[in-house]
Design a protein around this nucleic acid. Sequence first.
DNA 1: TCTGGCGTAACAATTATCGTTACGACAGCC
DNA 2: GGCTGTCGTAACGATAATTGTTACGCCAGA
Lengths: 147, 147
Amino acid sequence: MSANSRLTIAAHALAWIGLYQRQGHEVATSEQIAASANTNPVVIRRLLGELRRAGLVESRRGAGAGWSLARELGSITLLDVYEAVEPGPLFAMHRTTPDQGCVVGHGIQPAMRGVYQDIEETLRHELARVTLEKVLRDVLAAPRQPL
Amino acid sequence: MSANSRLTIAAHALAWIGLYQRQGHEVATSEQIAASANTNPVVIRRLLGELRRAGLVESRRGAGAGWSLARELGSITLLDVYEAVEPGPLFAMHRTTPDQGCVVGHGIQPAMRGVYQDIEETLRHELARVTLEKVLRDVLAAPRQPL
DNA sequence: TCTGGCGTAACAATTATCGTTACGACAGCC
DNA sequence: GGCTGTCGTAACGATAATTGTTACGCCAGA
């Protein structure tokens, strides 16, 4: 599974915007966030665009443009973020239809579908337990380097 | 996340071998399994090779060659299969190190690491609950098409 | 010795992610 | 009204993983 960092970067961006706003700023720019995440501003804009479609953030254009939270960090869970940025299911079925004339080929997909549904349900439950508020709290709790 | 079908195909192969052996056959060939899964024998051999490295199946060469189970279906769980065929973690961190001078850039990875560890732990627990014996049972329980 | 299938390398096709450049659109400000 | 900074998005390349496919040596029983 080519693990991707979309959820990580999206959470990073949300935490960054949230902290920045608590410091009194109105909006954050994709360039600032990209500098923190050490990536390209377009990557941030793409991800935040998906979060906006999900109603988690808002963007302002023109002068003084940038991004702001549409909801409190405490009301956003990692499940919200996951659903916004991760399209497909965790596990895939065969890419071609198995031999329906074979007993196993005929029954394997219904069997695995049940398993996968249970697993995704559990995953969603776990993700829903973590708010971005808690993520930011953990971020700030990370030990600073010694002097 | 480009979902992959490795776990599905591996479970398919194991269920197929298990059922075939219960019908009195010694070994199953990659060609037979590939026909059931509607894919190429090399794909099956590759996956079964990883399962053999994990001690789940055995292979025989020479005349009368083929694959057989190294353990009972009831003692093999989807977690065993998952660990054998899925290398990486579910979610990835940033591909480049975030800005350590930024509070969020510094603390985001420890924070997400904790979340991801919990999630993978839960996933493994779910996978460990399902034996291949149960998978085969569900496969055989799939409704047959009406006459 | 013959033969069927494993073991594995090699390559192409496909797909997703990520980085990057480019450029139009927008809105506040001078 | 023009300037400016940032968004919004298209386009392209690099990279990597998966999957399918061909090819061929190797093995062991008949």
